[in-house]
């Protein structure tokens, strides 16, 4: 009897110690709710939000940006324009590898300053090949270098996008105008899309993005350049907050050589249409059957 009660006491002691140790182990989570609201936690998928829901979400996100980054921003839900199919083409004959496009993307899309993130990577490849294995992104010298050509790579907005297929929760999808988007408030951060993408077009928010209030681009959209939360995927959206309002992508405007051509492929008078009809174009890794909307071409 004595032994039993001693055992019970010891067990109770063990359980108490265990519970205390568990609470101690979980203690770091106490800092979590700072960036986490109940509304956020229970928010439904983008496609399930009514107009009213969306307005509330947008105001909340604007407030969060003000609270967490000290910046006054406007976040819109910019919808696709009917009868528009966006396409992008890049002239490899004139690209000089200056990476102005990557820098413009960095600024326009409110990328993390600490990692100098951008949706564009520019490969320097020895002439005589378009083999990616022959390329490097780490070049650090004056451009263009003799005997080298340059190939910027960003999201190809594939019509048969592996990233969209693999997402287990439809957090990424193809919009009617051809742009592949991510609902940053629905993504669980499993990074399956990042593994599936053949073009290294997707980025993960490994940390909460760092960006100062004065550097934040206040012209934002829900599906594109608003400051992303930690732990979710992001990607190039053809600057839909600009292009769906008739403007051009930031990377195109920044290009000093005019290598970039963007527009509505359904418009017979558009420049993109002219390039697709008159130039020798190719897409990257065509054999994978991803059907990109990002084309490369040469002048001659």
């Amino acid at each position: 009897m004595e032994d039993t009660s001693r055992r019970t006491t010891l067990k109770a002691l063990g359980a108490t110690l265990g519970a205390a140790a568990f609470a101690r182990a979980m203690a770091p989570l106490a800092a979590w709710p700072e960036d986490l609201s109940i509304d956020e936690l229970l928010q439904r998928h983008y496609k399930e939000l009514s107009r009213d829901d969306m307005v509330r979400v947008l105001r909340r996100l604007e407030q969060e940006t003000l609270d967490q980054y000290g910046a006054v921003v406007t976040i819109d839900d910019v919808r696709p324009i009917p009868e528009v199919q966006f396409g992008y083409a890049l002239n490899l004959s004139v690209c000089v590898g200056c990476r102005k496009c990557a820098e413009a993307c960095h600024i326009e899309n409110n990328h993390d300053r600490a990692t100098n993130q951008s949706y564009i990577r520019v490969l320097e490849i020895k002439n005589g090949s378009v083999d990616l294995a022959m390329g490097t992104v780490d070049y650090d010298h004056a451009v263009p270098k003799k005997g080298r050509s340059y190939m910027p790579v960003q999201c190809h907005q594939c019509d048969n996008a592996p990233c969209v297929s693999v997402c287990p929760i439809e957090a990424t999808w193809k919009e009617p105008d051809g742009i592949v988007v991510v609902d940053y408030n629905w993504c669980i951060g499993c990074r399956y899309c990042e593994a599936a993408c053949p073009y290294h077009a997707r980025r993960f928010n490994w940390h909460k993005p760092e960006i100062s209030a004065e550097e934040i681009n206040p012209d934002q959209a829900y599906l594109s350049n608003r400051v992303r939360p930690q732990g979710v995927m992001e990607k190039c959206t053809f600057c839909l907050h600009r292009t769906r309002k008739g403007r051009l992508p930031a990377c195109l405007e920044a290009c000093p050589t005019g290598a970039r051509v963007f527009g509505n492929m359904l418009d017979p008078n558009s420049e993109i249409r002219w390039v697709l009809e008159n130039k020798r174009t190719f897409v990257l890794k065509e054999d994978l059957g991803t059907r990109p909307r990002f084309f490369y071409f040469f002048d001659k």
């Binding site: 929760i169 629905w186 993504c187 669980i188 993960f204 732990g231």
Partner: peptide, 20 residues
């Protein structure tokens, strides 16, 4: 533990989230 957003793990539950 590999999820960037474990708070949203419920999005994976059939019926509750959007099961692709």
């Amino acid at each position: 533990v590999d999820l960037g957003r474990p708070d949203r793990a419920w999005h994976l539950m059939p019926g509750l989230g959007r099961f692709h």
